[in-house]
Amino acid sequence: MAKIKQDVSSVVRGDQSQIEIMGNSRLTVEGCLGVEEYRPETVKLKFKSFSLRIFGENLVLSNLHGGSLMVGGRFSGLDFD
C-alpha cells in the first residue's frame, strides 16, 4: 500500500511520466519536458530520464500545455532512448 501511495504521489508531483496510448492513433503524455523534434513522420519527446520517439504518418501535436501533450496520427512505432 505504501508503495502505491508513493507511486501515485510521485505522478501527482510530476516526478514521473505517464504515457497513455489509444490504438495506433492517439497518444497522451503527462510529465513531458519538451518537444525535441517534430515532423509529420516523427515526433521526439523528452522526459526526465528518457526520450520517446514516435514514428508514423501525418503526426500532429495538440493540447500542449504545461507538461501534457497529445499526439495524433497513424503510429507505426515507438522507440525509447
Binding site: L33, G34, V35, E36, E37, Y38, R39, P40, V60, L61, S62, N63, L64, H65, G66, G67, L69
Partner: peptide
C-alpha cells in the same frame, strides 16, 4: 527549430493546440 518556441510556450503555461507542420 520551431520546437524551441513550443517548449517555451508550454513552460510558460500558454495553451497551444492543433499544431501542424
Amino acid at each position: 527549430y520551431p520546437e524551441h518556441f513550443l517548449n517555451a510556450a508550454a513552460n510558460e503555461d500558454a495553451e497551444i493546440w492543433h499544431i501542424r507542420r
